[in-house]
Design a binder for these strands. Structure first.
Length: 495
RNA sequence: GGUCCUGUGGCCGAGUGGCUAGGCAGAGCUCUGCAAAAGCUCCUACAGCGGUUCGAAUCCGCUCGGGACCUCCA
């Protein structure tokens, strides 16, 4: 197995991955804020890190995968009137905040299941860790890196920056941050514009509120990740993931908080996925171009020409290396849909193939197949290059189909090579890429019914009753089942 | 304005100095009762200008375009 190399945002280069504890990996991924429905943009990190999780597991690591649920509201805009997103919307919808949080959490879990992502090993909530967050804030105050003002607590960035490299992760220059002239309301509580809230005093209308040593309030946005990551993964852990948009201020602040509390840099490898764009623009609430996952799966959105299956979306995302932007379009999605179908059908046939012990009749082809399948590991270990891995799979598709068509002689490949190909395809297509069959109706009874229809069509064709054979084929096509005549008079179908 | 990233064929995307992915779409052929599927073949691009080099999509500079972050954000 090749050594895994990952691009570390902290050092801006690919590094060989070595876990702190041999055989174990601690991975924290920033989870969703459940104040609303997840959208296509959310699909990218959770699918990306699902693949990383699966790949690390494949490499033999025992991975503790922590992904939080942010269920405590945050400021609409820090500095302006504090506005708890979750409680505000709850009032509008006449729901209890936790009811709303539960609804969107359930919806998120449902969508993640559709994508066939493996649930994290621990999924902590922000509201469930208020005590830990308060404890951490107390430590920061004791260390002298935070100050209390009117029931709120702020992190003293300037003081931190004097002895630490604030801005290292995001490439921010501390002097620029301090000198920014923009004046915002309510900034007066902070000593410096660059300071960020650890705890925020709750206005009377806030529904979500907790007692703290500084009064009734709620935690700042960045502290939850520091607190929960520390609790479940320790003072220093291997991987922290999330979208690139979180680099600053979220992850930068996380580093500062954790460093003060734990006296060590919290994370060895920072891994960030790039954004999904739509017409070249990042998808996000502020851009008004959000496609919710429910809409994506149902096709119920003006931008969408049709519904897209979750597996199509997963495949679409995997066709790109995670650090590149990925541009959404109907054309691209439909391309992915067809590509996935072709790959999957070849894959299914390959898995059924059984051969007796044999030597390769075509040594050149045999070597090529072996080489292509071996390279899966090499590409994936090079910063998870799913795009290249997939490209190799597609180079193997004509070989598989050639065997199926008898266009390539059955004895061309050695039985060892076929077994190896089957193993590699199974491992990467299903176990690591997490792809699965798109057609839901493909159960036993349905298969039997299809077999009957196929027999009828074969018989009709044998007596040159093309009216009947065409009727079977065409009427099945109308309900979305495609019959395929194969070489040698066999038939198959796809839904 | 500051910091950073990026510009690949009709579309989506790999690729970091020579060998030049892959998918989708399109064209032709084979197979086939017809069609589809499948196979084979073709379409061979790297924003522009200059530079480095024997040689650049790949390195450097400039120009133009796109984007991200700096504010909630995957």
């Amino acid at each position: 197995m090749s050594q895994l190399k990952v691009y570390n945002s902290l050092t801006r280069q690919k590094e060989v991955f070595e876990s702190i504890t041999p055989g174990h990996v601690g991975m924290y991924v920033c989870g969703p804020t459940v104040s609303g429905e997840s959208h296509l943009g959310h699909a990218r990190p959770y699918i990306t890190f699902d693949v990383l999780y699966r790949y690390l597991t494949h490499m033999g690591y025992k991975v503790r995968y922590v992904r939080n649920i942010t269920d405590a509201g945050h400021f609409e805009e820090e500095g302006r009137e504090a506005e708890d997103k979750i409680s505000k919307k709850a009032v509008l919808e006449k729901l209890e905040p936790m009811e709303l949080v539960q609804k969107y959490t359930n919806l998120f879990h449902w969508a993640m299941e559709q994508f066939n992502t493996i649930p994290p090993t621990i999924e902590p909530t922000a509201t469930g860790h208020i005590v830990e967050q308060i404890g951490m804030i107390e430590q920061i105050i004791e260390a002298g890196y935070a100050y209390v003002k009117n029931g709120s607590v702020y992190f003293d960035v300037k003081k931190y920056a004097a002895s630490h490299d604030y801005g290292k992760l995001s490439g921010r220059v501390i002097d620029d941050l301090l000198e920014t002239t923009r004046e915002l309301e309510g900034q007066d509580e902070k000593k410096d514009r660059a300071d960020f809230a650890l705890w925020k005093n709750a206005a009377p209308e806030h529904i979500m509120r907790w007692k703290s040593p500084w009064g009734v309030g709620f935690p700042g946005w960045h502290i939850e990740c520091s607190a929960m990551a520390t609790k479940y993964l320790g003072a220093q852990f291997d991987i922290h993931g999330g979208g690139m948009d979180l680099l600053f201020p979220h992850h930068e602040s996380e580093i500062a908080q954790s460093t003060i509390c734990n006296h060590t840099a919290p994370v060895r490898y920072w891994i960030h996925n790039n954004m999904i764009t739509i017409n070249g623009k990042k998808m996000g609430k502020s851009y008004n171009n959000v496609i919710k996952l429910t809409e994506l799966f149902s096709g119920d959105h003006p931008i969408l020409e049709k519904a897209y299956h979750p597996m199509t979306v997963r495949f679409f995302i995997l066709q790109t290396q995670y650090r590149s932007t990925l541009d959404f379009s109907n054309e691209a999605l439909q391309g992915a849909e067809k590509g996935l179908k072709r790959l999957w059908e070849a894959y299914e046939w390959l898995m059924k193939l059984q051969v007796n012990k044999q030597e390769a009749a075509d040594n050149e082809l045999d070597a090529k197949v072996k080489q292509l399948a071996t390279a899966f590991d090499e590409f994936m270990s090079d910063d998870l290059n799913t795009a290249k891995t997939l490209a190799n799979m597609f180079e193997l598709v004509p070989v598989i189909n050639g065997l199926k068509d008898k266009h390539i002689a059955a004895g061309a490949l050695s039985s060892d090579t076929i077994a190896f190909l089957q193993l590699q395809m199974k491992t990467f297509v299903e176990d690591i890429f997490g792809l699965k069959n798109v057609s839901a109706e493909d159960n036993g009874k349905f298969k039997s019914v299809m077999q009957i229809l196929i027999e009828l069509r074969k018989e009709a064709k044998a007596r040159k009753d093309f009216a009947t054979s065409d009727k079977i084929r065409n009427q099945l096509a109308e309900i979305g089942v495609q019959l395929k005549d194969e070489k040698g008079g066999e038939m198959s179908y796809s839904v």
